[in-house]
Nucleic acid binder design. Structure first.
Length: 292
DNA sequence: ACCCAGGGTCGTC
DNA sequence: GACGACCCTGGG
């Protein structure tokens, strides 16, 4: 068990830029599960949270080590004005207006850098249900247990905790060919060849990206996801099969989407969405995937 | 049963 | 710079 834990409660007013399904099922996170009552339960750091929307309230309950208000304010970026962002992005074109209308309650989370790094290495050539399963098994095996409402939850394993896993252990948990990548990257951080705090403190997004790309299992797409979801660099534009598809269909119209150059999509995103490209990406990704 | 694709990366040419 | 291989699993 972790240090002193207590039940906490916090509420805020409901608003149009906060929808649990939009936030948790737009592909940015893998540790939230929908309950039968429509609420979501998940783990943030050493805290277990349940979140529900009732009447005019967004209600946070949890077994927490950190102050719940501070925790959710940071994690959900509650001080970021999404009404303003959506208004800005709506000016771009009809397509973006449609995707924003579809996923108007999306917010980009500020997730833990280590968890985001490992989770998105796992995401390579993988599908979301399986990614969630792998992370769940990793946490159960190597994370810390937290009991909440008579159920067990497990924190995402720290560097030290994850370093206990051998390549074979990871393979047994279903990591597939990503086993070695996770093992090697974990070792680099354990041996302090890289430092999370140091990376967090680098202002220049390009510089951070270069460092991330040195890590086993981190290519351009994974690096951009880490920059967006772990470091909230909203100007990066992760390009996966779905985003490639939607950008090709909307703007480029190449007969074979796989032939479209990444650079062309990147430039297009930069021109059209500028500093909000990453947020635009989430609206487009969620819209395309859910209506496919 | 079989095939395909999935929030790609890596090694090789 | 392009191309195939790669673990595994849910859905067609």
């Amino acid at each position: 068990m972790v240090k002193k834990m207590e039940k906490q409660h916090y509420e805020i007013e409901k608003n149009d830029s906060f929808n649990l399904q939009h936030i948790f099922e737009c592909g940015q996170c893998f540790r939230w599960n929908k309950e039968t009552d429509g609420s979501y339960t998940g783990v943030i750091g050493n805290n277990v949270l349940n979140i529900k929307v009732e009447n005019n309230k967004i209600i946070f309950n949890g077994m927490c080590e950190d102050n719940l208000k501070d925790l959710v304010t940071k994690y959900f970026n509650l001080n970021t004005d999404y009404e303003k962002i959506k208004k800005e992005l709506s000016k771009v074109d009809e397509y973006l207006r449609t995707s924003i209308e579809f996923g108007k309650g999306i917010r980009i989370l500020k997730q833990d850098l280590w968890e985001t790094l490992i989770s998105f290495i796992i995401s390579a050539n993988n599908n979301i249900p399986r990614i969630k399963g792998i992370i769940e098994r990793l946490s159960k095996q190597y994370g810390k247990r937290i009991e909440y409402n008579c159920k067990n939850y497990y924190t995402f394993p720290s560097i030290e905790e994850l370093s206990k896993a051998s390549v074979e252990d990871l393979r047994k948990l279903g990591l597939g060919f990503r086993d070695k990548r996770i093992y090697e990257t974990t070792k680099l951080f354990l041996e302090e060849k890289y430092d999370l705090k140091e990376i967090e403190n680098i202002k220049d997004t390009k510089k951070v990206r270069e460092i991330l790309l040195e890590l086993p299992g981190v290519g351009p797409k994974v690096a951009d996801c880490i920059l967006l979801f772990g470091l909230n660099r909203f100007d990066v534009f992760p390009i996966d099969v779905w985003v490639r598809r939607v950008m090709n269909e909307l703007y480029i119209k190449n007969e074979d989407e796989t032939k479209v150059k990444k650079e062309e999509i990147e430039n297009l995103a930069k021109i059209k969405y500028a500093g909000l490209a990453g947020i635009a990406q989430q609206y487009l990704f969620y819209w395309k995937r859910e209506t496919a």
